[in-house]
């Protein structure tokens, strides 16, 4: 095997030329275009990242504004609720005051009407009391003699049967006839009472005298089983009984 050194040298130079050719016309242009493409990719990624960051910032800004809006809305709602509560309380207070006023006025009117009614009632009672007193005292004897005459007039007006029953009551029971007067009778008056009554009720009647200031005025004859009242107190009781049904009706 022979080696042609000229050929070896030429091929070495040729290969170095090939290296230069490929480096000049292939590697450098391709590397440049690849680097430009990578740079474009980096720029695109950077721009995309920037847009993503901008979008993220816009999202954060939106969320912040939304949060602020929600907070403001909650504040407005709270303020509105407070205002409504205050207005409600004010209205309730006004209504309560108005109701209290109406109630006080009603109470005052009721009290006034009650007082007027009471005054009217007092006047009615006074009139009634006056009327009752007038009726109770009308024709009523005010002294011992007049009282005796009133009793005797009453006994004389009784029927014989009634008078006989009174006598029998005294005789059968051997009881006493008690003469109750509102004021103490004098001895002379007692003698007159006794003699006048014995004439009408018989000599056998035992007569005793007593005092009862509750009779107000007048006297009462207490038989064992009957009472003849000529007192003002009894008269007032009768008037009261007479007036009650009329008053209730």
């Amino acid at each position: 095997m022979l080696i042609d050194w000229w050929t070896l040298a030429i091929q070495t130079v040729n290969f170095l030329v090939v290296v230069w050719l490929l480096n000049r016309f292939l590697y450098k242009p391709v590397r440049r275009i690849i680097e430009e493409r990578e740079a474009a990719d980096v720029r695109a990624v950077s721009e995309a990242k920037k847009k993503a960051d901008d979008a993220e910032a816009a999202k954060a800004d939106y969320e912040q504004k939304a949060a602020e809006l929600a907070k403001s809305q909650r504040g407005l709602e709270a303020e509105l609720h407070a205002t409504m509560r205050k207005e409600r309380d004010t209205m309730l207070e006004d209504a309560r005051q108005e109701a209290d006023g109406i109630l006080a006025e009603a109470r005052e009117r009721t009290e006034r009407e009650r007082m007027e009614a009471l005054e009217g009632l007092k006047e009615g009672i006074a009139d009634l009391a006056g009327e009752m007193a007038r009726k109770a005292l009308s024709g009523h004897a005010s002294n011992g003699e007049a009282q005796l005459q009133q009793v005797l007039s009453h006994l004389d007006g009784l029927s014989d049967q009634s008078l006989s029953d009174l006598r029998s009551d005294l005789e059968d029971t051997a009881g006493a006839l008690e003469i109750v007067s509102a004021s103490e009778l004098g001895e002379a008056e007692r003698q007159r009472w006794q003699s006048a009554l014995e004439r009408r009720l018989g000599n056998g009647a035992r007569i005793v005298f007593s005092v009862d200031p509750s009779l107000i005025e007048g006297s009462e004859l207490h038989f064992p089983h009957a009472v003849l009242s000529f007192s003002v107190a009894d008269r007032l009781r009768q008037l009261s009984r007479e007036m009650k049904p009329a008053h209730d009706a």
Binding site: I3, T7, L8, A9, Q11, T12, F15
Partner: peptide, 15 residues
């Protein structure tokens, strides 16, 4: 092929 002769592979190997 140039590589079928010893000079070309020798030149490349030398490089």
């Amino acid at each position: 092929p140039p590589t079928g002769h010893i000079e070309t592979p020798a030149a490349l190997a030398l490089v």
